[in-house]
């Protein structure tokens, strides 16, 4: 390369090196089909266009680097009081349909009997707390009882993404399993595949937060909140800090501290799903 190709004081070669105007033009022409191909591959789905005021179109994403985080949750069953404020907050934050069986998050009461039995109840997902005096087993037979906040485990190895016939569900670099509502055909395979029952079909007449109907919805870890540095809505309203959320990349974050200092376990570890949601104080095979 000759000196003429260099700008004075500039280490970079000038664009000249044989790149004629004509070539650039050719490149542009060749780019057209490539662009089209990429669009088709990218599958900007048929129903993709959000219709509600909430779906910012075009999206104005907050400045966040999805590769810089490693989100995780620690659910503390030793402090959870089963008030259900998290269930309500999730519904209000994420337009989750009011039906009691459609929940992105819910709370269960686990009553462990002295005989090793486990009774799990969750009236209306626990949204209005739990009725007093309702005893699944007589008080003297109860070994332990506690509340268990549930949500999508955001598995590192998620079965739901394997079974989706249209690749509508995927994992972001920061570890959140999301649904591309434009691709989802609402077949419900992922509902069957999820070992944690964390997904639901948007009921007729209802919509996802992005205004799509007839598709599957699930916990996003409040992706719109965490990418702005906020807590997920459920963790925001929890009065007893039973939902410890944070970034595992940050050793000082509450979740990193909880993971190192508390004894935690995942649900159904034998399935190899590698959940990002961990539990403290969970006993027995209560899954």
């Amino acid at each position: 390369m000759s000196d003429r190709d260099m700008m004075p004081g500039d280490g970079r070669p000038r664009g000249g090196a044989g790149l004629s105007r004509r070539r650039v033009l050719q490149g542009g022409l060749a780019a057209l089909p490539a662009l089209l191909g990429a669009r088709i591959l990218a599958g900007e789905g048929p129903a993709g266009a959000g219709t509600t005021a909430r779906a910012a179109e075009p999206p104005t994403p907050p400045a966040h680097d999805p590769t810089a985080h490693d989100w995780a949750f620690v659910m503390d069953t030793t402090t959870c009081i089963g008030c259900g404020r998290c269930v309500e907050a999730c519904k209000l934050e994420n337009d989750v349909p009011a039906e009691p069986e459609t929940n992105r998050t819910w709370v269960e009461l686990h009553v462990l009997g002295r005989d090793g039995s486990v009774a799990v109840t969750s009236p209306d997902g626990g949204i209005g707390s739990f009725p007093a005096g309702e005893a699944a087993i007589p008080a003297e037979a109860v070994a332990n009882a506690y509340f268990v906040p549930r949500t999508c485990m955001q598995c590192e190895n998620p079965p739901c993404t394997w079974v989706c016939p249209v690749s509508a569900t995927y994992v972001t670099p920061d570890g959140v399993v999301l649904v591309d509502e434009g691709r989802c055909i609402g077949c419900g395979y992922c509902l069957e595949a999820c070992p944690y029952g964390a997904r639901y079909m948007v009921p007729a007449g209802e919509q996802t937060p992005k205004g799509t109907a007839g598709v599957v919805d699930k916990c996003t870890f409040c992706y719109h909140r965490i990418s702005r540095g906020k807590l997920p809505a459920c963790a925001e309203v929890c009065p007893v800090n039973a939902r410890i959320f944070g970034d595992r990349n940050d050793p000082a974050s509450a979740v990193s501290v909880a993971l190192t200092e508390r004894r935690v376990r995942a649900m159904k570890p034998s399935l190899g799903t590698r959940p990002r949601v961990f539990y403290t104080g969970l006993e027995g095979e209560v899954e």
């Binding site: 490149g27 542009g28 022409l29 060749a30 780019a31 057209l32 089909p33 490539a34 662009l35 990429a38 591959l41 990218a42 599958g43 900007e44 959000g50 909430r54 779906a55 910012a56 179109e57 999206p59 104005t60 994403p61 907050p62 966040h64 999805p66 934050e93 690749s167 995927y170 994992v171 972001t172 670099p173 959140v176 999301l178 591309d180 434009g182 937060p209 992005k210 996003t220 409040c222 992706y223 719109h224 909140r225 990418s227 702005r228 906020k230 809505a233």
Partner: peptide, 30 residues
């Protein structure tokens, strides 16, 4: 060269999904 110009670097970061879908989730208003 055309493909390199037309397809964003982030393409493929989300499997087959464009960054766009994840960003549209992130763009909802808290």
């Amino acid at each position: 060269v055309g493909i390199a110009i037309a397809v964003p670097w982030a393409y493929g970061e989300y499997g087959f999904h464009p960054e766009r879908n994840a960003q549209s989730w992130a763009a909802l208003t808290p």
